[in-house]
């Protein structure tokens, strides 16, 4: 039990996160690399996340509609769909898509850098590869996932508006009002805060798996795969935690 690989991995990841906080906020700062990672991990995931968010918003609205009509609660569709998207669906969809796309790419990239000694090469070039590769990526996912989430939320709501208007009509003002009437700061902030943690977890797991990859090219595939699996699971665990914490804080 005490020498299980799972616990060892948890411990290793915790140390890794500790190293991130220890080294990440000391100069020198890799601004250029951070920006370029933000571009790659954030902007280039926008299409994927945006399309997914849009489709989920539309599908959710269309699926919900018959039931709501049955209950005579058609006017509640915007509220229900809106709150679902803002509070739960957009964060989860964004985090899962980013875990799939970015988690695997970080895992594969760092592990291939590791097995081809490029990480060592950076180190002997007098560059701290942890700062240059890991801190920038972890920061990039931590910063970009909330922004991706916000854009996915926006697109999801736009899709929901479209879905509501496909059958029956609701003005944009009423749609907005219906959602805003039930939306509190707590909803929005807990969604944003939780995506910050999602982003951090995705970056942490991807980097950890890639940074300590071994066994040559086989290790690259394994790192990418386990990064995705673990990051996705971590997203759900964090989501569960987020529900509990926001309940405790009275944000729900």
């Amino acid at each position: 039990m005490f020498n299980s690989p799972f616990l060892a991995e948890i411990g290793g990841m915790t140390r890794f996160a500790g190293r991130f906080f220890r080294e990440g906020f000391r100069p020198r700062y890799e601004w250029r690399e951070l920006l370029s990672q933000c571009y790659v991990l954030g902007y280039q995931s926008l299409t994927l996340v945006g399309v997914t968010g849009f489709i989920m918003g539309l599908v959710l609205t269309l699926r919900l509609r018959p039931t709501m009509v049955q209950f005579g609660a058609e006017s509640w569709i915007p509220t229900m769909v809106g709150l679902t998207i803002i509070r739960e669906m957009a964060p989860i969809i964004t985090a899962l898509m980013v875990a799939g796309k970015v988690g695997s790419s970080i895992g594969a990239e760092l592990s291939s850098l590791r097995v081809t000694e490029q990480i060592d090469a950076m180190e002997v070039s007098g560059t701290n590869p942890f700062k240059y590769l890991v801190v920038t990526r972890m920061l990039a996912t931590t910063l970009m996932v909330p922004i991706l989430n916000l854009l996915a939320t926006g697109l999801g709501l736009a899709a929901a508006y479209l879905g509501v208007n496909l059958k029956g009509g609701t003005s944009l003002a009423l749609f907005t009002h219906n959602i805003l009437a039930r939306l509190t700061f707590g909803d929005l902030l807990s969604a944003v805060v939780k995506t910050v943690f999602f982003g951090f977890a995705i970056g942490l797991i991807g980097c950890y798996k890639g940074y300590y990859a071994t066994n040559g090219t086989e290790g690259v595939g394994r790192a990418a795969n386990s990064a995705v699996v673990m990051a996705s699971m971590m997203v759900f665990i964090l989501d569960l935690l987020a529900v509990q914490v926001s309940n405790l804080l009275g944000l729900n």
Binding site: G42, F185, V192
Partner: peptide, 21 residues
């Protein structure tokens, strides 16, 4: 492009916060 992306995202957040506020 990155700037636009970030500005749009934060714009969404600020707009939503303002509306709720």
């Amino acid at each position: 492009r990155l700037g636009l992306f970030v500005a749009l995202g934060l714009g969404c957040l600020i707009a939503a916060l303002f509306l709720i506020g």
